[in-house]
Write a protein that binds this DNA or RNA. Structure first.
Lengths: 188, 188
DNA sequence: CACCTTAAAGCAAATATGTTGCTTCAAGTG
DNA sequence: CACTTGAAGCAACATATTTGCTTTAAGGTG
């Protein structure tokens, strides 16, 4: 981790980090992502620009941090009673969130200001965690389950690919179809 | 297409575009991608910075253009005699090129400076074209073939996902395995 | 082939952003 | 309650970006 926080918790650094993140959120909401600049964020956060430059390097790395924070899932995936329906529900929600303009912007930001790939890795880890929960549940029900890597390849990757490279005509049916293709061919 | 060329071909604009692109290539080779700035590129290209700002908007959009140009495949995929071996050879080469540091940088650039997604779409279109050639050939041999979308989902997307989100431990075996999984389950 | 028309390029001044050395502050340590 | 130390503030400086206006040359017209 190049320049990341590693904050003395509770101290001044922590307060600065919090107010900078908050400023980004506010300004994104008020002016839109395009209008953000480091000096602007700094002013809103009540901090000098050089503080931001020294801690984050540049706007992209800051936005990348904020984006990853926002991409962290907030709730465990819902229990729908079977592997297939759990996965479908999760995939549909994932696609809905990520394919929306806001979601796409966060993904791009997370990827962009990420010299060493750690933020991108974090995003993938979040998805893997959620899938893990679903697969564990299925295993406890004695269902046959694919492994996490396979779900990433067959469900998450295609959705992400389309979100990033071919953003048109994505809908929840696509997510269902991917899951059906996987679970259908796995548990015969 | 927001601000793109739309050049009177052969005219001054075309020369400027060519010399700017050339300058980017030279400077990337000499100083590395990190060191590029608009004024630097402008000077090398023998052009004023405002020309670049007006035509491309900013450095990222310029680099995105250049990156897409470089991601264009140069040769048709090799004919290895069967769908499976054609796809495996193509996928291996694709993964090798794209997972290398240079390739990763181009993909990132292409995605990043791409407000409307047209450059990213172009990348995907390149892959689709190559796959199309392979599938046509296979169809002429009377092989059973998946459609292009399926190959994108099952082969290209997983490779891209890992390149972008989990760049570690990628090798050509992974590409082979993806193709085997697809062709195995398709032409039984 | 001279003469318009019109995008696009050049130029330069004004503005905004990013960088750096040095000073000051305050959280944790003995 | 000093003392140490990483992080923040400040200010001067260096670069990069934007903008209004002028000039150039490509392509069309009579």
């Amino acid at each position: 981790m190049s320049r990341k926080p590693m904050v003395r918790p509770g101290g001044r650094s922590a307060r600065v980090q919090a107010s900078v993140h908050a400023a980004v959120h506010e300004l994104e909401a008020e002016l839109g992502r395009e209008a953000l600049t480091v000096p602007l964020v700094a002013t809103r956060a009540g901090v000098t620009p050089s503080t931001i430059y020294r801690r984050w390097g540049d706007l992209q790395e800051l936005l990348s941090d904020v984006a990853v924070e926002r991409l962290r899932p907030e709730t465990a995936p819902e229990d729908k009673g079977s592997l297939r329906s759990d996965l479908q529900a999760w995939a549909e929600q994932f696609l809905e969130e990520m394919a929306a303009p806001t979601g796409r912007a966060y993904i791009r930001d997370a990827l962009l200001g990420d010299p060493d790939g750690s933020n991108a890795g974090q995003c993938s880890a979040y998805a893997a965690e959620q899938i893990d929960v679903i697969l564990d549940r299925a295993a406890n029900r004695e269902e046959t389950t694919p492994d996490v890597e396979t779900v990433l390849d067959r469900v998450v990757a295609p959705m992400m690919y389309r979100i990033l490279f071919r953003p048109d005509g994505l809908d929840t049916a696509y997510a269902r179809q991917l899951v059906a293709g996987l679970v259908g061919s796995t548990d015969h």
